[in-house]
Design a protein around this nucleic acid. Structure first.
Lengths: 199, 199, 199, 199
DNA sequence: CATGAATGAGCATTCATTCAT
DNA sequence: GATGAATGAATGCTCATTCAT
């Protein structure tokens, strides 16, 4: 009869987390539309009836998964923030992303494919959250370029994220992890090549 | 007694074309998964029962739409091929794509979003056709860079297409057509900056 | 502009016959319910639209096929009638039926399976015709036994037909043509064993 | 707080049983092909959506109904097995079957018509189960004849079952219950007339 | 008469969501 | 809170039948 969850986490939070994480995985692998609540139930081992205690609709699942991605991204950026220079931070970002290239080859960019799917979902579901996902990524990169004294920071940021996202699409479509790796190296060289205080 | 259809088109081809085109549009706007045959029926004004005279399964619709995109791309590349220099061809390609930025802002890149969706569909549907769509685009670009004497033609081609595709994702997610436009300009400048006969 | 059909047959009779015969075959192999008009069209090479010129409904097909079986049976009985003695006629009947045991192993008795299916169809379709099929067979056999002077001719006739029909069911279900053959031999011995003028 | 179902039956088993039994009836009366899931829903009062909680496909219904027939037959044979002599068992079997002649007049032999239909269904559905139904019946009868010391037990068994099955077809087709009754009497006399230890 | 095409009712099946315990 | 079961509105697809030429 002892409490099954830690005193600092709200009751049932662990179960909710399992659900969100399970949904994130299945959404990623099969896509949101093709994932049924029963799929999530099976994947997490939590019965369907119980799931609805935590999530009233499938859309709430989507929101929670989007938030999960946002949190993960925030943590990543926080970790990268510890680096001394903006150039180092940007290159570390590329490195991190490149490290997941095998998953990306199989299922695409978790954020990119989700965004694409949620954008088609609009009408049913506000894709606001998804807009945030990529947007704040661009914002963070922009900050780094600003710190480097670039007046064209926004364009550079868009270029970096766009190049990376596009590479994930090709990597996934052509099932070639090496493609993403080479593109990552190109991006790192490009970052190195940029002047620090010029427009 | 006037001919109902042009002598060069087989009977019923016009209706079939209407269906494929309708499907292409609805797939593009709502996504393949969220599009029902009834949606296509409503959009084209062709009753459901009749649709199945032309397409036996939804997957056949997908195949036909993929083929439509492939044909359109082929025509585009053929048109671009008339330009004198590879550099001019590449810049014209960027120009063409940039011209559709308003649609892309609303619905994303027709080929990119379709590919992404079809990749999640695998198992049910072979995404081979979709693989071709982006792949042959990269191939064509690579040829241009080869003609320019670049030994790193493949990497440059991947970079160009990736950058463009990524830009469509950001443009769509952030609903900002200007973003794609600026990125197009950047790509054109990049093409101009490349040495013609260096690795 | 020469007449395509013989002057003694009504126009289109040949095509109609092809249709009935095709339907008979497909009905036999797949069953009436599982056979579509398109199946008959494909099997006969006559386009669907044209079929409806000869048969307004699927039920009319069924009627025509039943009549075909009735005609064939009549011809068979007429042929058997040429034999001198009733005993010889009955044994020849058994012989004829036994000769088709390979088909029966694969698809059952053409008349028996059709009757069974049509009886389930009642409400939609009056199975009167089908009732005739087996009924007149029994009647003919009864006549033979009558001619043999048997006062229990009806019972004997029922026994003969029932035994044969039942054997086709087992033969078909157990996929064993030998079973029908042995049962045929048993029936012939039984006929031989019957006294000609006893009750 | 009283138990809703008996402790020996799993939860939902009663509803499942209602479904199987309903399906068995409707299959019997209308035939498998002409029975829709909606028919079963209406007949049992269980909504369509709920039915699929118990049976994922129509074929699963068919399997369950076949099994029901197999179970019923097993129970029948077990009951008959209590009789002292094989001859008594066989005669009791005939008696049991004869007792249902009114139903048979209306709908035919439950096992025979089902087998016939399932045999046409092959390709879609393995008629193995159906093969068993009649086959094990023959086997059981064969055992009785073996016990009687007949070396031709197999043939005799085939003859008995075939005669009975054929009689149900005629009875049903001609809508005459008396026909089955007379044939049953004939079979009983035949059994009595057989020598116990002769080939 | 011939034929490809049209039509709509119906069917098996799925699934998000709700309910009773 | 937990859970199996319930529910009904889709969804993709079929098919007998009809129509236009």
């Amino acid at each position: 009869m002892a409490a099954a969850s830690s005193p600092t986490t709200p009751r049932g939070a662990d179960k909710r987390d399992r659900l969100v994480d399970g949904a994130r995985q299945v959404f990623y692998e099969r896509g949101v539309e093709r994932t049924t609540i029963a799929d999530i139930a099976e994947h997490t081992g939590i019965p369907v009836g119980n799931i609805y205690y935590y999530f009233k609709t499938k859309d709430e699942f989507v929101d929670a998964v989007v938030k999960t991605h946002a949190d993960a991204r925030e943590q990543l950026l926080a970790r990268l923030g510890r680096r001394r220079t903006p150039r180092a931070r940007l290159k570390a970002l590329i490195e991190e992303l490149d490290a997941t290239r095998d998953l990306i080859t199989d299922y695409g960019c978790p954020i990119g494919t989700l965004s694409t799917e949620l954008n088609k979902r609009s009408g049913t579901h506000q894709a606001l959250g998804s807009r945030e996902l990529l947007g704040s990524m661009v914002d963070w990169v922009e900050e780094q370029f600003n710190e480097m004294g670039r007046s064209d920071a926004r364009d550079l940021a868009v270029n970096l994220i766009a190049t990376y996202e596009g590479a994930t699409i090709l990597t996934h479509s052509l099932r070639d992890p090496d493609l993403l790796h080479r593109q990552s190296q190109r991006l790192r060289r490009w970052i190195d090549s940029l002047q620090s205080a010029a427009g």
